[in-house]
Design a protein around this nucleic acid. Structure first.
Length: 286
DNA sequence: GTGTTTGTTATCAA
DNA sequence: CTTGATAACAAACA
């Protein structure tokens, strides 16, 4: 699941690869995954820059246009050069038996650059999408998202302020709400709550000042740590080079339901909260 | 055939 | 209008 650290990893890798390149053509295999007139809108545009907002990838193009990309659950962006190689440092580029550096049965969109390089958009479940928009639309999208947890705007004061907006929400559901705080998904919600010793089912208004402070620190720490390790490769997440993230070994609760808590040895509980799988330690989290 | 995986949005109820 | 809860979307895997 690409969440903030995974999307940041993709953006970091892609920046060096695609900046300055000019789009020559697009192959759209699943029309519903792109905006109207996508092919002509992307044609001859040059990549100026690339950044992240929440889980959204924003690629600035020439002529005041922006390529928005959302990977949703299983999207992968792979860059290959004119020789068809992903410059990933000789790592295996296999996901199951699939060669990610070539169009495969999960390839939904192919963007070709003038110089022969390609950007492949694989997406098993077809939830991801690409849109070409203008500045006005980008600003609108950005406005709808909540505070960036790794920005300097995410102060303790700001956190308290937004927590007050939704006192009745369960804290996990609060963390997953992109309009309140942007970029956290199921993995880092569970990991941050474990790290701060707070039960996912606690109501926002029940959190003590000390817990709020601890939670903010945990969110920041976990996200930063995950970026440092190139994200978490569960399901299909890979870097634009085809490499996998290395944060899986550091997960304390996510996908560990029924196993022993690494802190106290008790068996981790697994429940459904707001329709999402949720793992926590009954002893370490209060 | 059934349950499970989850980011976002549509829909509905209070 | 706001808030929150739930289903739907798609596809593969155990």
């Amino acid at each position: 699941m690409p969440e903030l650290p995974e999307v940041q990893t993709v953006v970091n890798h892609l920046a060096a690869k695609i900046k300055g390149r000019i789009f020559k053509s697009a192959e759209i295999k699943v029309p519903k995954m792109v905006s109207n007139n996508f092919k002509s809108a992307v044609l001859s545009r040059k990549v100026i820059g690339i950044k992240r907002r929440g889980k959204m990838i924003i690629i600035e193009l020439s002529g005041n246009r922006y390529l928005l990309v959302h990977l949703k659950l299983t999207g992968q962006l792979i860059f290959v050069d004119r020789q068809g190689k992903a410059s990933g440092g000789g790592h295996a580029l296999e996901n199951g038996n699939i060669d990610l550096t070539r169009p495969n049965k999960f390839t939904r969109i192919i963007l070709n650059f003038k110089d022969g390089g390609r950007l492949l958009f694989h997406d098993l479940r077809k939830f991801g999408w690409m849109r070409i928009v203008d500045k006005l639309e980008v600003d609108k999208v950005i406005r709808q998202l909540g505070v960036e947890p790794l920005s300097k705007e995410f102060t303790l004061k700001k956190f308290i302020e937004i927590l007050k907006k939704r006192p009745k929400l369960k804290i996990k559901q609060f963390l997953l709400n992109q309009e309140l705080i942007a970029g956290i998904g199921n993995i880092y919600a569970d990991e941050s709550l474990f790290a701060s010793g707070i039960l996912p089912s606690r109501q926002v208004k029940s959190l003590k000042a000390e817990e709020v402070k601890k939670l903010r620190q945990s969110v920041i720490k976990k996200l930063k740590e995950a970026i440092k390790f190139g994200g978490t490769s569960v399901n299909t997440f890979v870097h634009p080079s085809g490499e996998r993230g290395k944060f899986m070994a550091r997960l304390k609760v996510y996908q560990r339901g029924g196993q022993k808590c690494l802190c106290c040895g008790k068996i981790l509980k697994k429940i459904r909260l707001g329709g999402r799988g949720t793992v926590y330690c009954f002893k370490c989290q209060k």
